[in-house]
Design a protein around this nucleic acid. Structure first.
Lengths: 109, 109
DNA sequence: TTAAATTATTCCTTGAAAGGAATATTCCGT
DNA sequence: ACGGAATATTCCTTTCAAGGAATAATTTAA
């Protein structure tokens, strides 16, 4: 896992920006600033960090910039988490194994 | 999503500690320090942060502390990522739909 | 009880990140 | 070309996290 993704997400305002776009779809800097009650300069700065981290795509449209989510970093994070999933999947795996065991068991005795 | 988990993971050495324990199982402070070539004080400090963030469990054993991974924060992170999964699952969903469409299509003409 | 091993804490310094305020830049419409 | 809107950048200050070095605390062994 690379830490730039995590560092970008670790700042509360940036995390809010990400979740806002996830929920509302692509937004401009001004939209984001309004909805999250941030000043425009700080919003630009945070979006810059998100963009440099590859979390976000920036589409110039005349005067404005439309900010979209990119999928790759989240996929990477998801993939990284797979290496941990066995920690809490064990219980389910055992249940699964148990059920398959039940299925094939000889019930004749 | 809460930022304390992300903040804790965003520091490279701490991320290494997490991955080390994930791969090798529970380790002591000294083990971690040796394997990652960190000084003991910094290792203790980083583990402290990880513990305060709930990422790690600390079991005193005589002179030493045994550091184990906790599952909850990773489960939470996993759950948070689910809200993003549709972003890259859409393509697969459409492919799936396409394939099912192909299957049922009338090829008689 | 003393010594050695393991870990924790404190103090200090440094660097980086974040916000505020002001200003610059870019683009459109007229 | 000019004014206004949207965004970017700069400068400044403050806060905070991280590492180094030294030292404290705890436990075991002898």
């Amino acid at each position: 896992m690379n830490t730039t993704t995590l560092t970008a997400l670790a700042e509360p305002n940036r995390l809010h920006i990400i979740e806002l776009i996830r929920d509302r779809g692509p937004l401009t800097i001004g939209d984001i600033a309004n909805r999250l009650e941030l000043n425009q300069p700080q919003t630009s700065k945070h979006v810059r960090v998100l963009h440099e981290a590859g979390l976000v795509e920036v589409q110039p449209a005349a005067n404005r910039r439309i900010i979209k989510l990119r999928t790759e970093p989240f996929q990477e994070l998801d993939h990284w988490l797979e290496s941990f999933r066995s920690m809490w999947d064990d219980r389910l795996d055992r249940l699964d194994e148990y059920l398959r065991d039940i299925q094939g068991r000889d019930h004749s005795d």
